[in-house]
């Protein structure tokens, strides 16, 4: 793989926690402003990949009480969490390799650093991120195939493709922790020395991969380099499988790489990653229902007239897709 050290991933897409908070805040604010101005937040994305702000609604200012309430930052977070899980589900159903799933997840996370779920339907973004990840990882699946597999309109996937690349600033090569895990496992083989460790290491490897799956659902991939995510996954798997003395193993890795980083700093990062995993929260049914209701009103698809107007306006959006948008959780 091209070098992570010189990558756009490292230079542009690893943030401090405060930077993340600021970005989420800014995206939320933009959506709220749009809502105030236009009475609705959902961007129109057309077949040519261009997008535009919602049409001002005539009655937007007339009735202040019926004006839709925007999502809070926490509610937006819940929405993303929900669809990131969906994303993993879809990838598993298609039996895509881990790498594609991870790439799609990272695209999804990066996309929503720029936008709010109020502005772009996360279901559409999720599917298009999967489609784009397949294209980039050379596991090409046609949009039609992907759409069919989950009975969604594939034109929608194609509509969103360009805006996703654009929002990602065309930085499309991403580094997932799975490969780093592999590398660390093979270092561990040497570290352990004896061959009878192999089956144990195999188990550790599998456990670590599952651990990475969990980490990938948190914000940690936007905060830490993939190598550290991999080590955190290995460390927590090792706590269960007890294969190596992890501290000694970390020391050997650091000395191997002539790294100037102190072990305490590294351990601190791993602890932080662990705490991201521990504090991960999945929204309850009740939360979801509530958020979805709010979202729908933000999207302006609660009333019948509105949805009809939309259909008429965008002929590329099939009836099916807009109906589904209404029924989506």
């Amino acid at each position: 793989m091209a070098d992570f050290q010189t990558s756009t991933h490292r230079a542009k897409w690893i943030f401090t926690p405060q930077q993340l908070v600021d970005k989420y805040e800014a995206a939320n604010q933009t959506a709220i402003q749009t809502l105030e101005k236009y009475g609705s937040t959902l961007m129109e994305v057309d077949a040519d990949g261009s997008f535009s702000y919602p049409e001002p609604q005539v009655n937007a200012n007339a009735d202040k009480h019926s004006r839709p309430k925007p999502l809070s930052i926490e509610e937006e977070q819940f929405m993303r969490v929900f669809y990131e899980n969906k994303l993993q589900e879809v990838c598993n159903n298609f039996h895509f390799p881990h790498k594609i799933q991870a790439t799609a997840l990272i695209y999804f996370k990066r996309f929503y650093l720029v936008w709010s779920v109020m502005q772009h339907h996360p279901k559409n973004i999720m599917l298009t991120c999967i489609y784009a990840a397949c294209k980039i990882e050379e596991n090409h699946v046609s949009a039609e195939e992907l759409g069919k597999g989950i009975s969604q309109d594939h034109q929608m996937i194609l509509n969103y493709e360009m805006i996703i690349y654009q929002s990602l600033e065309f930085d499309l090569i991403v580094y997932a922790p799975y490969r780093s895990v592999e590398g660390f496992i093979s270092v561990m083989e040497e570290f352990c020395g004896e061959n009878d460790h192999l089956p144990v290491l195999q188990n550790l490897h599998e456990a670590a991969k599952m651990e990475v799956d969990k980490i990938m659902l948190t914000d940690a991939p936007l905060l830490f380099p993939p190598g550290q995510l991999a080590l955190a996954a290995l460390r927590s798997s090792n706590e269960v499988h007890r294969v190596v003395d992890f501290e000694r193993y970390l020391m050997s890795i650091l000395s191997r790489q002539n790294s100037t980083d102190s072990i305490s700093k590294l351990v601190q990062s791993l602890n932080e990653i662990d705490s991201w995993v521990r504090s991960y929260k999945f929204p309850s049914e009740k939360d979801l229902k509530h958020i979805n209701r709010k979202l729908k009103s933000c999207w302006g698809i609660s009333s019948h007239d509105e949805s009809k107007k939309r259909e008429k306006k965008s002929k590329h959006k099939s009836k099916k897709s807009s109906n589904e948008a209404e029924n989506m959780p």
């Binding site: 490292r10 690893i14 943030f15 600033e169 380099p225 190598g227 550290q228 890795i253 980083d261 700093k265």
Partner: peptide, 19 residues
């Protein structure tokens, strides 16, 4: 690896969109 999470360098300002 061993890379501390260096803050995002500036956008290289490369991608321009249509309109």
């Amino acid at each position: 690896m061993g890379d501390g999470s260096s803050g995002g360098g500036g956008n290289r300002g490369l991608v321009a969109s249509g309109n």
